[in-house]
Design a protein around this nucleic acid. Structure first.
Length: 711
DNA sequence: GACCTGCTGCGGGTTG
């Protein structure tokens, strides 16, 4: 049966009015499943395949007769921008059917929020953090608001699977369920995902069979791609010819140029605009990243979306998720992404229009990046992406949620609290003794307080301090920043860890500035225009590379594959890297230990987690690791023979705890609330997030180590 | 050698 006839009369009329030709394949599959079954559903398909409508046409059909009276659907988005975007899309579909739609996030004004609280109905579009704020600040209303909810729609659900933010969200959904007459169905909208089992249990561990995953048939778009290498100089500066080539490439097309850091975005934007100016073209390249003022960013998004001229945006992963910037013809990636899924997501931003193809240009500017880019691209072509693994033992989020739950209940006994957590979808599996240990720790440190003859728990004084801070609602870490202003105009932000002085020249938002003054108390930096400047530095986490990427890099070193999509300079560099490997006829299951006088270089080419664990194991045997990188390449200077130690590592019975003494401060796990946990629970988090003993042993057993002496 | 994401309520005043 044509899914059209499954929809309500008003939805059918709406589709007529919008002059839709036909449903997309994903819509044809999803509509009957929502209407005819009671299942949770994950809709996995590329951008612009009509996922939102696939979910909302049938949902509106099911709820339209009663949606005027109470809240039926909670739509959750990781981005405020996406809420604003989708608001218009959903409003369009539900125009004439009296289903109210409400937006709720940090930028929505109080009046609108008040109105919703007074008469909650229809659809609520909200962020995880704003759900948290409802539990904390609107406690007396939540029962009334949530009781009739029938659907949770989670947009970009893949972005929640492996993150602390996802743990928080899933906990919040559990807490909402406690107030619902019936358990709401979960509909997830996702880019391509792997590891179906994991996403099923993320949605409903009690009944994974009831989660249907609907994957759209792959698109028939042709992918055009190539890689160009421009070796940087000794001071790691990108050569001018690289920028000239990039200018040439983007002169006639609308493109996104992805860089790996905010500083590179700034540098690239300024350089490209200088080249464009030489051709008497006006501003053509726009910078986009999180430390550029929001208004400026929105201006850039609009300019790119509405421009018919070939303008381009230079961005970090800030433009990776679904923010609408119109049709993009070309995606450029400067140096390798850290994950395959990131490259896939970025490339999906081009060729969205019907009958257009996808164009991807990779640039590399150093040898590692070349090798890594090839590895990532090859894995993408093999259709591999990093599988979801979740966020293990989330005691840090448990800490935050306990504060929030105590606030929600305004007095709860320890037994009730534990029962509540045991019924929570993300905490149920944590041992009761450990939950109790955390609660008692929180009482001891005044995060919680016992009242009513020590029977009931409320938020303690130090808990209040955390709870009343506006920083409470999000669970991810952020760094402190200065606000940069030019007169009354906000330009963006600078990382406080980066030491600046008056008179320094910086690039921000693609423009050059001189720092005129720093007002520490207000956290403000005052700037005026300059003619010459350097990009600022921002500080982030280290990178964790999946084993599969490192292994692929090693495989490429061993092979003599020419890769038809790379230029001559890239092939020359690659052959240069391969020389020693080819000369010694190294095979892909082998790993080389290069010996040079008193130094040993072991090129492990394995994942970052395994590499670090290996380093700690080596240190425990007294081997001094001088340097190591995220691909497991390490340098050792030691009289102890490394080979023997590696052998011993595979034979020993390891306990994770014994590696802790050999871990440097900066190598420990860290998250927003991790420092507030009892030591024992914190170490559990560290162990499960950072240590992989079985991984190291399996890695060492699967490889054959070849010792080569270099002189 | 990184990147991204988010965020009180209330009362009292002014403005459209």
């Amino acid at each position: 049966m044509n899914p059209f006839y499954l929809l309500s009369k008003s939805m059918q009329k709406k589709i007529w009015d919008m002059k839709w030709g036909r449903f997309t394949p994903i819509q044809e599959m999803v509509i009957p499943t929502i209407i005819h079954t009671n299942k949770d559903i994950v809709i996995s398909s590329g951008t612009a395949s009509g996922k939102t409508e696939a979910a909302f046409l049938p949902i509106l059909t099911l709820i339209e007769s009663t949606a005027g009276q109470s809240l039926k659907v909670i739509y959750i988005s990781p981005l405020k921008a996406l809420i604003n975007n989708q608001f218009e899309r959903i409003e369009k579909v539900s125009e004439h059917i009296h289903v109210p739609i409400h937006r709720w996030h940090g930028d929505v004004d109080q009046g609108k929020k008040k109105k919703f609280i007074q008469s909650p109905a229809g659809i609520l579009q909200i962020t995880p953090e704003s759900i948290e704020s409802l539990f904390v600040n609107r406690t007396e209303h939540i029962k009334r608001i949530f009781s009739d909810v029938e659907f949770f729609v989670i947009d970009e659900i893949h972005s929640f699977l492996d993150t602390e933010r996802g743990v928080q969200l899933r906990s919040l959904l559990s807490r909402i369920e406690n107030y619902c007459k019936n358990r709401p169905r979960i509909i997830g909208l996702s880019a391509t995902i792997d590891n179906f089992d994991f996403i099923r249990s993320w949605i409903n561990y009690c009944n994974t069979d009831n989660v249907e995953i609907i994957v759209s048939p792959g698109n028939d778009k042709e992918l055009n791609y190539s890689l160009m290498h421009f070796q940087n100089d000794e001071s790691f500066k990108k050569p001018v010819v690289f920028f000239e080539d990039l200018r040439e490439l983007t002169r006639e097309s609308k493109s996104i140029i992805f860089c790996n850091s905010r500083g590179e975005v700034e540098e690239t934007t300024v350089f490209l605009n200088r080249l464009a100016k030489r051709e008497n073209v006006g501003e053509t390249y726009y910078a986009h990243h999180s430390s550029i003022d929001k208004q400026e960013r929105e201006y850039v998004e609009r300019t790119i979306a509405n421009s018919s001229a070939p303008k381009s945006v230079v961005a970090t992963s800030s433009l990776e998720l679904g923010i609408d910037i119109g049709e993009i013809e070309l995606v450029v990636q400067v140096d390798s992404t850290f994950t395959v899924s990131s490259l896939k997501q970025r490339l999906g931003r081009s060729g969205r229009k019907k009958d257009t193809n996808q164009y991807l240009q990779l640039y590399t500017t150093n040898q590692d990046s070349l090798l890594q880019s090839l590895a990532v691209m090859e894995l993408l072509l093999e259709k591999w992406v990093e599988p979801s693994v979740g966020y293990p033992v989330p005691y840090d989020i448990l800490f935050q949620q306990i504060v929030s739950i105590c606030q929600e209940h305004n007095g709860i006994t320890e037994i009730e609290l534990i029962n509540n957590l045991k019924g929570n979808h993300v905490f149920y599996f944590l041992p009761t003794e450990e939950i109790r240990m955390l609660i008692h720790h929180m009482i001891n440190y005044d995060f919680l307080e016992l009242i009513n003859g020590s029977k009931e728990l409320i938020v303690g004084l130090d808990g209040e301090r955390i709870l009343r801070d506006k920083d409470f609602y999000s669970v991810f870490m952020t760094s402190e920043e200065y606000e940069v202003v030019n007169g009354a105009k906000k330009i963006g932000q600078l990382d406080k860890k980066w030491l600046i002085n008056e008179g320094d020249n910086i690039i921000l938002a693609g423009k050059l500035w001189t720092i005129q003054g720093i007002e520490e108390s207000k956290g403000k930096v005052y700037v005026t225009a300059a003619v010459n400047a350097n990009p600022p530095r921002y500080f982030g986490d280290g990178s964790k590379i999946h084993s599969k990427i490192s292994e692929k890099m090693h495989e490429i070193l061993c092979s003599d594959e020419k890769f038809r999509y790379i230029n001559k300079e890239a092939l020359n560099e690659l052959n240069d890297l391969r020389k020693a490997y080819h000369l010694n006829n190294i095979k892909s299951q082998q790993r080389v230990l290069w010996k040079q006088r008193d130094s040993y270089y072991f090129e492990g080419y394995t994942g970052t987690k395994i590499a670090r664990t290996l380093v700690w194991m080596l240190r425990s045997f007294g081997v001094q690791v001088k340097k190591y990188d995220e691909f497991g390449r390490l340098e050792v200077t030691s009289s102890i023979y490394l080979l023997g130690t590696l052998e011993q590592i595979t034979q020993k019975e390891w306990r994770e705890e014994e590696l802790i003494a050999f871990t440097r401060e900066e190598e420990f796990f860290q998250s927003k609330y991790s420092a507030l946990l009892p030591q024992e629970l914190y170490m559990k988090m560290h162990i499960l997030h950072e240590i992989d003993i079985n991984g190291v042993v399996a890695f060492l057993k699967n490889i054959q180590i070849i010792v080569i002496t270099m002189d």
